Simulated assay, not measured.
Amino acid sequence: MWSESKGSGLEALGLGLSATPREALEFCARKERGEAGFRDLGYLNIGVASYSDIPEELPERLRRAGLGTVSHLEEFNLVEPDIDLGVAERVARKAAVLSPAWFQEDLGLWSHGGTALFGHMMNAMHAEADVARVAGNIRRLMAHTGMLFLAENAPAYMTVEGMDLLGFLSQVAERADCGLVLDIGHLIGYCVATGRDPVRYVQQWAGIERVVEIHVAGFQVLDSPHGPMWLDDHTRVIPARGLEVLGTAVERASNLKALTLEQDGAVPDVVLHNLGAVSAVVAIS
């Protein structure tokens, strides 16, 4: 629980990469070889679902490479009235072999009506009823599994809100007594949709003290007849605006323990470029 640690008791992991369980084996090998860009990695953010196949040798490979882990759950609709605690228990038990420092999940819809939404995941509506429902689900999840949980802001292509995103995250974290993951690209998407300046928005956010992990990745902002449109795209080089917002968030997040570069689908040259760019921002901040 956040109230027990206030962030200070959590392990500092440093810079990490997102990975599937299979990709994690490759990244362990590259870290052990001391490849450029990988030698300074502190951990892997490994996506785990009830259907995930975790290689038997992965825990030992992580240990040999000196890599910690966090686990990104990939199938819980925490914004809906009820979550399947049986599935939650199975996923937590599966991920536990990786000894994650904490678990995390986006506050949005991974699926709807039995259809997986994947890259078209929908964010929560920011209303008082949603705060109570999401916080209640998080409390039940933590109580049932005994796992430390961080709530993440979901991708936001549009918003129907009774309160702003960061206010919503703060209220959820307070009521659920949990920490937060701040996704920089998702935040910028929200700011594009609502006409906010993301740097000023982060600078004014008192709740940033609950941010334990930050995510950063590539994205696009495209022109359209209806105004600018943000697209999440982890295969791309991180734009300068993303690095600027990242620097502001890193500077202000007093309980920050981990910074995850999400690069699913990116070619090796882009991964190495982004690792260098993010490392430079962290060194400056």
Results as ranks from 00 to 15, higher is better:
His120Asp: 15
Asn137Trp: 04
Arg63His: 09
Ala24Gln: 04
Asp82Pro: 00
Asn153Ser: 01
Leu243Ser: 13
Ala154Pro: 09
Gly242Leu: 05
Pro155Cys: 03
Gly242Phe: 03
Val131Ser: 00
Leu17Gly: 12
His144Pro: 00
Glu23Cys: 02
Val97Leu: 06
Trp2Met: 02
His186Asn: 15
Pro81Ser: 10
Leu169Pro: 05
Val282Met: 08
Val97Trp: 01
Leu246Ser: 13
Val87Arg: 12
Ser5Phe: 12
Ala36Ser: 12
Val211Pro: 07
Arg139Ser: 12
Lys6Met: 14
Met142Ala: 15
Gly68Met: 08
Gln263Tyr: 10
Pro225Thr: 10
Ala65Met: 03
Asp130Gln: 11
Leu259Ser: 08
Arg140Asn: 02
Glu26Cys: 03
Glu56Gln: 15
Asp106His: 14
Gln203Trp: 00
Ala193Tyr: 11
His186Tyr: 02
Glu251Tyr: 05
Val250Ile: 15
Ile83Val: 14
Glu57Asn: 01
Arg200Val: 11
Ala96Ile: 00
Glu213Val: 04
His273Arg: 10
Ala266Met: 05
Ala258Trp: 07
Thr69Ala: 12
Ser71Trp: 08
Met229Ser: 04
Ala176Met: 02
Asn274Pro: 12
Ala266Ser: 11
Gly227Gln: 12
Asp197Phe: 09
Lys6Asp: 11
His144Arg: 14
Val87Asn: 06
Arg139Val: 14
Gln171Lys: 15
Pro228Cys: 01
Trp2Ser: 02
Ala29Asp: 14
Val181Cys: 06
Arg64Ile: 00
His144Gln: 09
Arg140Lys: 09
Val79Thr: 15
Ile284Leu: 11
Gly167Ala: 05
Leu182Ser: 09
Cys191Thr: 09
Leu109Val: 04
Asp177Leu: 01
Cys191Asn: 07
Glu4Arg: 13
Thr145Ser: 01
Gln220Asp: 13
Val212Asn: 05
Glu262Gly: 06
Ala217Met: 08
Asp40Phe: 13
Leu166Met: 09
Asn123Arg: 01
Lys31Leu: 03
His112Lys: 00
Asn137Glu: 08
Glu209Lys: 12
Arg241Val: 13
Gly276His: 06
Val270Ile: 15
Glu80Pro: 00
Leu169Ser: 06
Arg140Cys: 03
Val216Gly: 09
Gly68Ile: 06
Ala36Tyr: 04
Thr194Tyr: 05
Phe149Gly: 08
